[in-house]
Design a protein around this nucleic acid. Structure first.
Length: 440
RNA sequence: CGGAGUGUAGCGCAGUCUGGUAGCGCACUACGUUCGGGACGUAGGGGUCGCAGGUUCAAAUCCUGCCACUCCGACCA
């Protein structure tokens, strides 16, 4: 992509409404634009990141055996009356009437709808376990949206729903998601710690929040230092190995970890002082097992081997990709701007042409640009006629992992400069070597 | 929902107290000079001063009502 033809509305000054780092940087780097309280447009650069985050989430959901579908955002109130939640949910749910005066709602979550789909088609114990998920916009009419996309009213959510014949099966489904979540957050460059959680309005009795540590986090959290050294399960983890998954989950749920609501100071204090981590955290995922809470009232049953109807045991599993992006920025930035993990960077490489119009410089940039594009690398070529200083500032702000700095000075020796955004380290290399390094 | 604020050009702000031709910086357009860490000069363009009503010869400025947004708190993916 050539910057001169791209849509990248950078803000030089910080909009006054933005208090926290991620919000400031997302506005300045042209990732999002606020449209109303808690409502944001995703601009091209932001959308690229969102798509990459979603791709990783998908890969890990699919790897664990979950299957993607897509449900509508507007739902009928009828389903929610069946589960009893139409009255229970409260003002957070945006209620709408259609032209026929039918009660509709903008979905804050999809347990009812997925249960409806399940019960319509699945009739036998032979067809479970089943885990269906989608990545879709949700609306929750928060009393007080804030912190940009960290707490918005309209937000993207990956929500998965598992169906099993009994609690033991549901436990395994829960463990699959648990491991998938560990892997997902790890691939995004985050250290996420599972913490026992209250099950909230969704109900149920087995629930974990995945929290990443960040000094600007919304909640206070406490955990054992041991988590920081834990190795995340590898990609070849066998998700059908019941005992294997159980032992992974056990390992990750044994050391002390709790949010302030669940905190047990006495238990925490039994840890050696050096092992106690008390910090701020951001919730990036939440998983629940809630048994037959929805299947019973909504009559989602399957025939068991004995011919009897059994209500299915369900769980639900949520990740907020839009919030996740803010969390990544909170965890990874410096004074100059965002520092994207390579996996979700909107572009892997930025080419900085320091002297547009200079024949040798233009030629070197074009050669590099085409070579990288030909290799399928996402590259943003800054071919604008801004001065070098402005280009450096922009490149740092939008946080691309690699900057290929091309100017007459280096080219005099046949070299360009490769700079890493993470640590600012630079190396002078030939064009060919640059292509090789960036393609690796 | 309680408390505190803010709305003036795309962004950041001054002007409001004390009513009298709507300003500054950045950004934008043109030309020139510059060019390895957010350049400079000259000349331009752009505003229903959040909305409605009122007071007045005259309202960004005073009064009344409304709307939007932000922050702190309680609540939450």
């Amino acid at each position: 992509m050539r910057l001169s033809r791209y849509f990248l509305p950078i803000l030089r000054e910080t909009p006054k409404e933005a208090e926290i780092v991620s919000h400031r940087l997302m506005l300045r780097a042209g990732l999002i634009r606020q449209q109303a309280a808690g409502s944001y447009s995703w601009l091209p650069l932001g959308l690229r990141v969102l798509d990459k985050v979603n791709a990783i989430i998908r890969e890990e959901q699919n790897r664990s055996g979950a299957i993607e579908l897509l449900m509508p955002t507007i739902q009928s109130a009828e389903l929610w009356r069946e589960s009893g939640r139409y009255d229970a949910y409260g003002k957070e749910m945006l209620r709408i009437k259609d032209r026929h005066e039918r009660d509709m709602l903008y979905g804050p979550t999809n347990e009812e709808m997925i249960t409806d789909i399940f019960r319509a088609y699945v009739k036998s114990y032979k067809d479970v376990p089943l885990n269906l998920y989608h990545i879709q916009w949700k609306f929750r009419d928060e009393v007080r949206p804030r912190f940009g996309v960290m707490r918005s009213r309209e937000f993207l959510m990956k929500d998965a729903y598992s169906f099993d014949i009994d609690q033991a099966g549901a436990r395994h489904s829960y463990n699959k998601m648990f491991v998938a979540y560990l892997r997902t957050f790890h691939r995004l460059g985050l250290t996420a710690i599972p913490m026992r959680a209250e099950s909230g309005p969704i109900g149920g009795d087995m629930s974990h929040e995945f929290i990443i540590l960040a000094s600007t986090g919304e909640s206070e959290v406490f955990c054992d230092k041991a988590f920081l050294d834990y190795q995340v399960p590898t990609a070849d983890t066998n998700f059908d190995d019941v005992a294997g998954l159980e032992s992974i989950v056990k390992k990750w749920t044994t050391p002390y970890a709790a949010t302030s609501e669940m905190h047990d100071a006495a238990a925490f204090d039994t840890l050696p002082a050096d092992d106690r981590v008390s910090a701020r955290g951001i919730e990036v995922g939440h998983i629940f097992y809630f048994g037959t809470k929805y299947s019973q009232p909504m009559n989602a049953v399957v025939k068991g081997p004995d011919g009897q109807d059994v209500p299915v045991h369900m769980g639900s599993y949520g990740i907020g990709p839009s919030r996740l992006i803010a969390a990544v920025i909170e965890a990874s930035h410096d004074d100059g701007g965002i520092i994207w993990p390579e996996a979700i960077a909107p572009f892997k490489v930025g080419i900085l042409n320091l002297k547009v119009g200079d024949q040798a410089t233009d030629a070197a940039c074009e050669t590099l640009y085409h070579a990288l594009e030909a290799r399928g690398i996402d590259v943003l070529y800054d071919d604008t006629d801004d001065r070098p200083g402005a280009k450096f500032a922009t490149a740092d702000l939008i946080g691309l992992p690699w900057q290929a700095v091309v100017g007459p000075k280096g080219l005099a020796e046949g070299k360009i400069e490769l700079k890493r955004r993470t640590d600012g380290s630079r190396q002078l290399v030939s064009l060919e070597d640059a292509v090789a390094i960036l393609s690796a």
